[in-house]
């Protein structure tokens, strides 16, 4: 028995939920960024699975674009994290509550 499209979508839903939980539950900027990567990857999986089901390459091309955006997001996000850490010596998002320092 081959795994069906539905199996892949369920797996992707689980991964996406884990990513969401990570963003809400964790209080560490780096882990939050990692959780966003998990969510992006869950979406990539649906793209590839749907692309396979439709017999078209468009799904894989969208994955390509998602990865580019993820790379850009990671670069800028981590630069911001470094800058924040230099100011507050902390990675906890709650310590960046003030609008000005």
């Amino acid at each position: 028995m081959m795994p069906t499209l539905n199996d892949y979508l369920v797996l992707s839903a689980i991964l996406f939920a884990i990513g969401t939980a990570g963003v809400f539950v964790r209080r560490n900027l780096i882990t939050i960024l990692l959780s966003i990567e998990i969510m992006l990857n869950a979406v990539n999986l649906t793209f590839v699975a749907f692309g396979r089901a439709l017999g078209a390459v468009d799904g894989q091309i969208l994955v390509f674009f998602v990865m580019t955006v993820a790379a850009a997001e990671a670069a800028v996000g981590l630069a911001i994290v470094i800058d924040l850490f230099r100011h507050r010596e902390s990675l906890n998002p709650d310590s960046f509550a003030s609008l000005k320092w």
Binding site: M2, T4, L5, N6, L9, V10, A13, I14, F16, A17, I18, T20, A21, F24, V25, R52, A53
Partner: peptide
């Protein structure tokens, strides 16, 4: 909220019959 999201996605996926979508 995350748990709710999972339940909702699961429900949506199983609702239209889990057998569909053979590659």
């Amino acid at each position: 909220l995350a748990a709710g999201l999972l339940v909702e996605l699961w429900w949506a996926l199983t609702k239209n019959g889990g057998e569909s979508g053979v590659f």
